[in-house]
Design a protein around this nucleic acid. Structure first.
Length: 294
DNA sequence: AAGAACTCCTGTTGGC
DNA sequence: TGCCAACAGGAGTTCT
């Protein structure tokens, strides 16, 4: 569900109440999410100060005192809700319920010294959390293989062409591969390919010439990915079926989707007249305009 | 070893 | 209206 812009938006929302704050107590309501939670998870977090919030790929990072990082992944349906200090719920959990989903899926609850309460809710439990020593973060198994951040200079036409060179997968699969570029998901890949007129099923090798140098459209694709992510972050992240900002407000970037979930609807490019088509690649939906994507 | 298939889990949606 | 299959924004693991 959440891709880089949504994760960034959630992280910023969390930073407003967590950064510089101290964790008073953590309620861990089940032993695992997608993976087992760390040993003595709640006990190890209580009393810790959150020095800084950050993000890497689709991971939200809470840098703790004592040189450990709490890494959190939202999976498909993970969400955080914030109950600010001094909000008195009529019944316990009342405020959280506004946007937090079914209370049965409240798995981890952070009680801050400030009085703020941050609740992690995840129906499908594809999300996970881990406590990792700061020094070993980049070499941790979840992070070691990650490709460059798409908004950093490390992601550019040259590195993308290099990653695509000789690959047999299609463009869709290449861009979803977190080892190639970290943070894209189904929606933004589909949207970026539309912008540059490449169809999702085209071979990834089209991004490189015979020497592994960038092909003509490679630079445009890099630029489109950056633009789309920046626009989405600016808009506060997408809001789809089960996504909410941490404060319960709906996002609105879905209004800007040009092809995603628009099967059968007209292509929005001026004068195109094509009809958006849904296809399935590796069990996942893709959308493209057959007239302007080749 | 790359690439594709399968898997985890629950909620929602669309077709009949 | 009710029922049930299909599908959902992720990604690690297992196969071929």
């Amino acid at each position: 569900m959440p891709e880089l812009p949504e994760v960034e938006t959630v992280m910023r929302g969390l930073a407003s109440v967590l950064e510089g704050g101290r964790i008073r107590k953590v309620e861990q309501r089940r032993p695992d999410l997608r993976f087992p939670l760390p040993e003595r998870f709640a006990a190890r977090l209580s009393g810790r100060r959150i020095e800084r919030m950050g993000r890497r790929a689709k991971y939200i990072l809470a840098h703790l005192d004592g040189d450990e990082v709490l890494a959190m992944h939202l999976g498909m349906t993970g969400r955080f809700t914030i109950t600010p200090p001094r909000v008195k719920a009529k019944t316990p959990g009342d405020v959280v319920r506004v946007a937090g989903g079914d209370p049965r899926h409240d798995h981890v609850v952070f009680h801050m010294a400030s009085g703020a309460i941050v609740t992690f809710n995840d129906a499908r439990r594809f999300g996970y959390m881990d406590l990792i020593p700061s020094a070993g973060l980049e070499s941790h198994k979840h992070f070691a293989g990650l490709g460059p951040e798409p908004l950093s200079n490390a992601f550019n036409a040259e590195t993308l062409a290099e990653a695509a060179n000789g690959r047999k997968v299609d463009l869709k699969a290449l861009l979803l591969d977190q080892r190639v570029v970290a943070g894209l998901g189904n929606i933004y890949v589909v949207e970026a390919l539309f912008r540059v007129g490449l169809k999702p099923s085209a071979p990834a090798s089209r991004l490189a010439d015979r020497r592994g140098r960038p092909a003509p459209k490679t630079q445009a694709l890099v630029a489109a990915i950056r633009d789309i992510l920046n626009e989405a972050i600016a808009a506060g992240g997408s809001s789809l079926r089960d996504y909410r900002h941490t404060d319960g407000e709906l996002g609105y970037f879905q209004k800007a989707h040009q092809v995603y979930d628009r099967a059968g609807e007209p292509c929005l490019r001026q004068g195109c007249g094509g009809v958006i088509r849904r296809t399935v690649q590796a069990g996942r939906s893709s959308f493209h305009c057959p007239r302007c994507q080749r």
